[in-house]
């Protein structure tokens, strides 16, 4: 059976698309699923660094598309879950024009034959790179931050996905600081969901360990003590269809507000 293709997108850059892709890839692998992560950000290769796999790369996605190697040979095995997680790296020395929407679709479908989940890390923006990244997707996850500009860009991307006739996307609100939300200094997840009017699949709290974990190539999902790691583990389980309650980030009032309470 063909695996499910999930594209992680946002519109705005810097909201945590790549971090999310890395953590969900590892999270799903840790649950025992076979996962292939595709770094679609040609020219700005990052996913390999965050996964800590940079020094294992031999081939990249453009090599596969140009027929210089096979997909199977280009895939880099993860050092923690070699049987479950593999990465198709972006090309660092090329640009987005090197691949077409059809190319991406072909590679993603082939990858889906070899895995339960294919996660595509979309480039920022709404141009060609975004379009080829969402083209093969069965499902799109939109990552946003609790910032007005990021939410606006997420709304734009959702509108474009609707215009392409894609399935309705799901939302991940990243880098929530509960204490700032409590003091009304930060957009709260409930009002973001209210505006964007799409399904919420995860809220990831701001957590200092995310940055250091990414820098070390050891994504936070592997850290049992990290709250962001817990959030990513929860999202991974929701992706496979489990019902996981949302984390209690700020006492009962937070959840009440999120689910249409006061």
């Amino acid at each position: 059976m063909r695996g499910k293709i999930i594209t992680i997108s946002s519109g705005k850059g810097g909201v945590g698309k790549t971090t999310t892709t890395a953590n969900l890839g590892l999270g799903l692998a840790a649950l025992g699923y076979r996962v292939i992560c595709i770094d679609a950000d040609i020219g700005l290769r990052n996913l390999d660094v965050i996964l800590g796999l940079e020094n294992r790369i031999v081939y990249d996605i453009v090599n596969v598309i140009e027929g210089r190697t096979t997909l199977r040979r280009a895939l880099v095995r993860d050092k923690r879950f070699p049987e479950h997680l593999r990465l198709l790296p972006a090309a660092q020395t090329r640009n987005k024009e090197a691949i077409s929407e059809e190319d991406m679709e072909r590679v993603a479908y082939e990858a889906a034959e070899m895995a339960d989940f294919v996660l595509i890390d979309s480039p920022a923006g709404i141009e060609h790179g975004f379009r080829y990244a969402v083209r093969p997707a069965d499902r799109v996850l939109i990552v946003t931050n609790p910032e007005v500009s990021a939410v606006r860009d997420a709304d734009r991307v959702i509108g474009l996905l609707e215009a392409y006739g894609r399935a309705e996307p799901s939302l991940i609100v990243n880098r929530i600081k509960p204490e700032l939300v409590r003091r009304n200094e930060m957009l709260d997840p409930a009002s973001i969901v209210d505006l964007l009017a799409i399904d919420l699949i995860g809220i990831v709290p701001e957590d200092r360990s995310v940055l250091s974990a990414s820098n070390r190539g050891q994504p936070v999902v592997l850290d049992k003590r990290s709250s962001a790691g817990q959030a990513y583990r929860n999202i991974s389980r929701r992706l496979v269809g489990e019902k996981v309650p949302f984390m209690d980030l700020r006492g009962p009032s937070f959840l009440q507000r999120l689910f249409g309470g006061a």
């Binding site: 606006r152 860009d153 709304d155 734009r156 959702i158 509108g159 474009l160 609707e162 009017a197």
Partner: peptide
């Protein structure tokens, strides 16, 4: 014109 939809950013 009667429409049932949400106009999103950029539309």
């Amino acid at each position: 014109l009667f429409l049932r939809r949400t106009l999103r950013s950029g539309q």
